[in-house]
Simulated assay, not measured.
Amino acid sequence: MTTVVALLLVGVGSVAYRLLPLLGAARVPEAVSTAAGWAGISVLTAVTVRGVLSHEDDSIPWAVPVALVSVGLGLAMAVRGRPPLVVLGVGAACYLVLAATAGALG
C-alpha cells in the first residue's frame, strides 16, 4: 500500500511540476527540479527492489537470486550508457538463461 501511495504522490507532483509554467510561474526553482528528479528515481528504485526481492516462481528453484543477477546486469549496462532496448534485451536474456540453468540443476 505504501508503494501505491508513493507512486501517486510522485505522479501528482510530476504533473504539478509540468503545469507550473502553464499556470504563470516564470521559472521553476532549481531546488524543486532537483527534488523532483530524486523523488522519481527513488520511487523507481523502490519499486524495482521490491519487485526483485518478492519475486516468486515455483518453476525456478532460486527465483530471487536469478532476478537479482538479471536486474544487476541490466543496471550495469544502463550505467555504461547502453540504449534501453539493449538493457532490456540483455537483462531478459540473462534471466532466461539463468532460469533454465537453475531449473535444470534443481
Rank of each mutant, 00 (worst) to 15 (best):
V97P: 12
L85H: 14
G24Y: 00
A78T: 15
W38T: 15
V28L: 10
A31N: 02
V97N: 11
L68P: 06
S70G: 04
L73A: 08
V43T: 14
S14N: 05
S33H: 08
R18F: 15
G103W: 10
E30V: 13
L19Q: 05
L8C: 12
I60Q: 01
G89V: 01
L68G: 14
G74W: 02
S54M: 14
G81V: 04
P29I: 09
G11F: 02
A67H: 01
Y17I: 01
V79P: 13
Y17H: 00
R80C: 09
S42A: 04
V66K: 06
V64G: 09
D57K: 04
L22V: 04
L85I: 03
L8M: 11
A63N: 03
V97D: 09
A99I: 12
G91S: 14
L73C: 13
W38L: 15
Y95W: 02
L20A: 04
G40I: 01
A63W: 02
P83V: 14
P65K: 09
S33L: 05
A92D: 07
I41M: 13
G24L: 09
G89C: 04
P65S: 03
L88K: 09
W62M: 14
A92F: 02
R80S: 11
P83F: 11
V86C: 05
V52G: 13
V15Y: 00
L73W: 11
V49E: 13
M77T: 13
V64T: 08
A102Q: 05
S59D: 10
L88W: 05
L7V: 14
S59Y: 12
V47A: 10
R27V: 07
T45S: 15
V43N: 10
T48G: 02
P21E: 08
S42W: 04
S42L: 06
V32H: 05
V86R: 00
A46C: 06
V64A: 13
V69Y: 06
V12N: 04
A76S: 11
A35E: 10
A39V: 06
G103M: 05
V28H: 12
P83E: 04
G74Q: 04
A78Y: 15
A102N: 07
S59Q: 13
G24Q: 12
G89R: 01
V97E: 06
P61Y: 00
G72N: 08
L8D: 12
D57V: 06
G40W: 01
S33I: 00
S14R: 00
Y17G: 00
V90G: 08
A26K: 06
L44M: 13
H55D: 09
A25K: 00
A25R: 01
L68A: 15
L9A: 15
S33M: 06
R50F: 15
D57F: 07
V97Y: 11
G11P: 01
L105M: 12
P83I: 05
A36S: 10
T48V: 14
L8E: 13
L73T: 11
R80G: 09
P65G: 14
G74A: 06
S14W: 00
V43P: 02
A36N: 08
